[in-house]
Design a binder for these strands. Structure first.
Lengths: 168, 168
DNA sequence: CAAGGTACTTGACACCGTGTCAATTGACAT
DNA sequence: ATGTCAATTGACACGGTGTCAAGTACCTTG
């Protein structure tokens, strides 16, 4: 909080006039960032895709490119998840929202009859959701050094290979 | 530290007579757990497998079943990774060791000529390493509710589908 | 101009968790 | 009986979050 106040050229106490707790501040920051980046619209765009396969690709691209934008605040929120109920709920809600995107993509595949036959929609959603987790992005880009573009591209192929039935 | 001391029926200060810092204690705990569970041997067993495919399966099973055993301490270590150099190094070392197991399995596939042709060994190792991360285990079993056996089985099929070239 | 409100300041303080230190105790071995 | 070792109690420093009180600077409105 001291650091944040400094950057804002405020006293630490003044920050508390705007946000009651650290968690609240971070959560507000995520909303602000979302608005700034027009995330809603970008995710909405992925819903326009016709085929399930296209939709999957569009969703991965939209979400995958969103991660680095929110990673700073996201990491801070994640770090306090274990000790702060408010932070945990905010994070989990975000992840549940994201999961709906996954479920929608899987559903589209399912309707197309292109969902890999040995995966139920639920399990497929679990897999996609986990594959696209922020932690995985962290590992692949920051630890393994994948450039962002490679991350998007490789995850798209990966997801497709796992989830989409091989075209006869 | 207070809680740990209580459980050990010691004063908090006495704990510091044995372990200089919280991080040191947790790290020692991981070593102790490893020894107790004979993890070395179990991982070694996976090296005996003949084909790359077998080796991959054995490794996933060994590591995947190791995760829940170390998860308690592992989580505590992970939680302080961002704020404690010692903890970060210990964790990263563990993950690097695990990565070697991944690399060995990928290498075996590569030698068998059964590694999926559109993946370089390095990228394949990155993918397997990420797939088998503790965070992914956490998401799939604790958040998605996969039973441990399902986790192992599904991850094996998943990994195989991603990494192993479809047999002509 | 005066009064009031608003945003902010400084400074003090409580609470919690980690880590340190000094003085003491009790058991055991030589 | 003496020394050593493991543990105890109690106090304290430090850093971070969150709270509170009192004061200030500025702006609006009557």
């Amino acid at each position: 909080m001291t650091d944040i106040a400094k950057r804002a050229r405020l006293s630490r106490q003044a920050v508390y006039l705007h946000f009651a707790t650290r968690a609240e501040l971070l959560i507000a920051a995520t909303y602000y960032l979302d608005e700034l980046n027009g995330v809603e619209d970008r995710l909405k765009a992925s819903r326009a895709a016709r085929s399930g396969d296209e939709r999957l690709g569009a969703f991965i691209e939209a979400w995958g490119n969103y991660i680095p934008e929110m990673y700073g605040v996201g990491k801070a929120l994640l770090a306090m998840k274990d000790s702060d109920r408010e932070a945990a709920e905010a994070w989990d809600k975000r992840m549940q929202d994201m999961r709906e995107g996954c479920a929608a993509a899987i559903d589209a595949l399912h309707r197309d009859n292109t969902l890999s036959p040995d995966l139920s929609p639920d399990v497929a959603t679990d897999v996609l959701w986990t594959l696209l987790s922020v932690r995985n992005w962290e590992l692949l880009t920051l630890e393994c050094g994948w450039p962002q573009a490679a991350y998007i591209e490789r995850l798209s192929t990966l997801a497709r290979r796992i989830l989409v039935a091989p075209s006869t």
